[in-house]
Design a protein around this nucleic acid. Sequence first.
DNA 1: GATGAATGAGCGTTCATTCAT
DNA 2: AATGAATGAACGCTCATTCAT
Lengths: 229, 229, 229, 229
Amino acid sequence: MLSNNWAVCNFFLGRRRKILTTKREVPASVKDEKLIQKRRDQMIKGAVKLFINKGFHRSTTREIAKAAGFSIGTLYEYIRKKEDVLYLVCDAIYDQVQERLQEVIDTDRGNIESLREAVRAYFKVMDEMQDEVLVMYQEAKSLTKDALPYVLEKELDMVAMFQKVIEGCVRNKELMLNEQEIKLVSHNIFVQGQMWAFRRWILRKLYTLEEYTELQINQLLYGVQGRKE
Amino acid sequence: MLSNNWAVCNFFLGRRRKILTTKREVPASVKDEKLIQKRRDQMIKGAVKLFINKGFHRSTTREIAKAAGFSIGTLYEYIRKKEDVLYLVCDAIYDQVQERLQEVIDTDRGNIESLREAVRAYFKVMDEMQDEVLVMYQEAKSLTKDALPYVLEKELDMVAMFQKVIEGCVRNKELMLNEQEIKLVSHNIFVQGQMWAFRRWILRKLYTLEEYTELQINQLLYGVQGRKE
Amino acid sequence: MLSNNWAVCNFFLGRRRKILTTKREVPASVKDEKLIQKRRDQMIKGAVKLFINKGFHRSTTREIAKAAGFSIGTLYEYIRKKEDVLYLVCDAIYDQVQERLQEVIDTDRGNIESLREAVRAYFKVMDEMQDEVLVMYQEAKSLTKDALPYVLEKELDMVAMFQKVIEGCVRNKELMLNEQEIKLVSHNIFVQGQMWAFRRWILRKLYTLEEYTELQINQLLYGVQGRKE
Amino acid sequence: MLSNNWAVCNFFLGRRRKILTTKREVPASVKDEKLIQKRRDQMIKGAVKLFINKGFHRSTTREIAKAAGFSIGTLYEYIRKKEDVLYLVCDAIYDQVQERLQEVIDTDRGNIESLREAVRAYFKVMDEMQDEVLVMYQEAKSLTKDALPYVLEKELDMVAMFQKVIEGCVRNKELMLNEQEIKLVSHNIFVQGQMWAFRRWILRKLYTLEEYTELQINQLLYGVQGRKE
DNA sequence: GATGAATGAGCGTTCATTCAT
DNA sequence: AATGAATGAACGCTCATTCAT
């Protein structure tokens, strides 16, 4: 139940610094950790392709196994339930996004240029990982009660990256924003990046990625009235 | 297939002014139009509740019938396929949103105050219809190839409302924006409204609706730097 | 159950002269006998068309009602069960065949020419009523336990017509056959007539109706060796 | 649609020597060919019993599975649709009939005695396989458009066996028949064999198998007038 | 550790039949 | 007498999951 999900999330997220520090474990029957990693990589790779085309609910476990390159029996040696696949997929996608961002975003420079660069980098990643983002985006709600908080926490971690960049600017007096405003802007940036993926059916017709990026950055910095005259 | 869906959408939306002017009809076996309306209203009401809790895929046709207050046989007198319920639900929600907006938004005044009001009104509707918006938002991807364009068109109609308000401001020199910028801002407003619904798990903790609204409007108008000093 | 059907048939047919002299009644809710006849005629006409195309089991009561030109509710004013339609249809087809035969077959002349004529007339009727015969033929097995004997009795009545013609020939010494042989030949003629309908997929390619008729008559009269040299 | 079926059949049969040489494959999910054969044998055995009693349409897939000795899920590992069962059953029955005939019929001797023997053997098989023949006979029409030609071709193969025997007699001047006549007689024999099965409700009362056989052979050879003398 | 045959609960859907109007 | 909306048992079929090999 979604509404229950939110309740559960709130519960967890409220104290997340305490409990959610480690990954949620999906138990496997197989012992060899190396093998588990290898098989799950195969699985995730296949499943993402599948989910992009048919969504999670319309993909069968058999199809997932096949796409992964092994049998249905083997699939169940590495997961307990179909929903574990979804969690593993979502988890992997977020990790990938985050990893790529951490490579290119400098959260410590604390000037407007670093904010511009962060947004550009983020939008670029979202563009390159469009399909994956879409999957995450559309299927996250199918995650079970206990898996969802782990994924939401990763979202917050990403939002926190932008927040950190902006806080740097504020600290250096490049921007004048209170905490509420900082958080809102961070969330806006985050959503606008996703938006490029989940509204691509219309945005792609109106803008190239570069146009979209620069327009959003300008709007972010100056608003619609800041440039009025 | 999602990716195909997009192709289809693009195809339809490309020429939408010509083909998509009328509603997509869902055929019913029952002839009495009044009755059809009544039963479908029951159905939609029940289905929304269900979809909020379990999502479309996890809701069974029997549950939908029960929630609507009639038997499974009767359900199928008013739809052909389970997916028709989803279309009917999405369609109804959008109609409702749009209707409520048209009541309160004045697209002709053409000043900044009217833009503020439009955004406030829109965010208020999105707040009041949180559950419905969430359903639409999360389940739209499960719509069939042929139903999706109808729903997307409605989205564009709503975006167009904001666009019209902004164009008014531009015409009256209250704002200086080119067409690309106008469109982007319209989409941003639209998405930020939805965002209040689909990210409520975090936003509700940070802001009241009023705070969220005013912060977003200010960010929209002045950007983060327009107010720098 | 078919096997039970046979048992039941045997039971009934064994004493048929006593019990099966009247038509099996299909009760109607409506009182007006004239109307019953009219509505059932509509029904049979529509149903035959339907059964030709889709068979009994694949035709729904709604389709039957529609094909008859009235509502499903009305249909059930004139029958009790769907299977009644099948009985009514089979019954009507046999009546029609028999009526047409009685018009043209002279069972009293008692010469070989009258036998030839009877066969020719019968085959002609079977040719003209191909579709109906096929329906009867293929759907009779779906008749209920209690309806089947009535239809089988009609078959025997038709076989008896040929038997009568042949008995006339024997009485006049035009043929030398004992009773067993007479009956077999009668059944053969009957089946060969049906055969033209139910094996038309191949026979039509090999013969015209006239060729088929004359070849069968010759084979009937002279065998394959009677003409050996 | 039955009428369409015939059209399709004609189409296929017209060129059958070219296309229909191989069996129609019914795909199975299971890979082990041996197992497929075993399970399908179970299935066919159970289904024949069921179809004899209730007909194809009145037998449910669950009943078929149960009669076969496994679960509904397993049934569908070996077929795709319920209709596949019917095809498999019809196909198996024909194969069985044909196999038994090929064991006993000598198509090369080319004398009248061999024709007598062929007919006797055929009628005996039809007697022993009464139930199966009845099923084939009554349910063949429920076969799908694409399955029917395969079954009809098998019929023609059997007719061709009699044709071959008769052609031998003609070649050896034991009989004087043109091709049209040969074909007709072959079809007659074939139908008269089936007739013993599908008209057993009356024929059994009039004749033993032996009487029926000898009477038909005599009628075949000498006609009703050849012996008039 | 890998396989894939087996299972059966449960799904979407149909349709003969009823009955209030 | 005629209608057609309502019903729900029962159908064909799917698929997540298990477990013997």
